[in-house]
Computed example of a mutant assay.
Amino acid sequence: MSSNAVTPIVYQLQQGLQQVDFRSLVDGFDLKSLVSGLDIKTFSWIALIVVALIFLYEWWTKSYGYDASSLAVSAADYWQGNRDQFTYDPYVRGSRSLEPLTEVLDALANAVKKWESSQENDVRNRSS
């Protein structure tokens, strides 16, 4: 659309706005009467419905899998990087009750790392 086609519309809008009395519009707005006439129960229900609709929309349109996988990978990195710090204490290292726990955490960390590397390979294969 060229500027010549828009010019008559802008001119009419400009002429119409000169005839509008904004002062009477602002003076006629009374916030106190608006708030005093507000029904709290109805307002609460409307606000609750709006928040629920926004939550459902966000829930359906976004995938939170990336956030969960990055959290698992960072936890696995932390465990693998600080494993000796947790198991350095001779009481902890020699404890029969905590030995299976460290083996389980090692296995989980290795599984997460293996899964993450397979995910990265899939993304690279798709992009090439």
Rank of each mutant, 00 (worst) to 15 (best):
V73T: 15
W59R: 15
W59N: 12
S97M: 01
V73E: 01
R83K: 12
A75W: 02
R83L: 04
S70P: 03
G81H: 09
Y66H: 13
R83T: 02
I49A: 07
L56E: 05
Y78G: 06
S44I: 00
A75H: 08
P100G: 13
A75Y: 01
P100F: 00
P90F: 11
Y78K: 13
R96H: 11
K62E: 09
D89R: 07
K41Q: 14
T102Y: 04
Y91H: 04
F55H: 02
L71T: 15
D89T: 11
L53E: 00
D89N: 14
L48H: 05
K62S: 15
V50M: 04
A68G: 11
T102G: 03
V50F: 00
W59V: 14
S44W: 06
D89E: 06
T61H: 14
W60C: 14
I49V: 00
A68M: 04
K41Y: 02
E58W: 07
P100H: 01
S95W: 04
T102D: 05
I54F: 11
D84M: 06
F55C: 11
S97A: 14
V92D: 00
A47W: 02
D84Q: 14
Y66K: 09
A68T: 11
I46K: 10
Y57N: 14
D84H: 07
W60T: 15
F55M: 09
L98H: 00
K41L: 07
I46L: 09
S69R: 12
W79N: 13
F43A: 08
Y88A: 05
P90S: 13
R83A: 06
V51W: 05
I40T: 11
L98Y: 08
F43Y: 06
F86H: 03
Q85M: 14
R96Y: 05
V73A: 07
V73N: 02
A75L: 14
G65V: 08
K62L: 13
Y64D: 13
L101H: 08
A72Q: 12
D84G: 07
W59L: 09
Y91F: 06
Y64W: 11
S44L: 08
Y91T: 02
W45I: 04
S95L: 02
S97K: 10
P100V: 00
A47T: 01
Y78E: 12
D77E: 10
E58I: 14
G94W: 08
Y88Q: 15
Q85V: 07
T102I: 09
A72H: 08
S97Y: 02
F43Q: 02
L53K: 04
D84C: 04
A72T: 09
Y78S: 13
W45N: 10
K41S: 11
A47I: 01
D67S: 12
A47G: 00
D89H: 03
Y91W: 02
S70Y: 12
Q85W: 11
S97Q: 04
D67Y: 13
Q85G: 12
A47S: 01
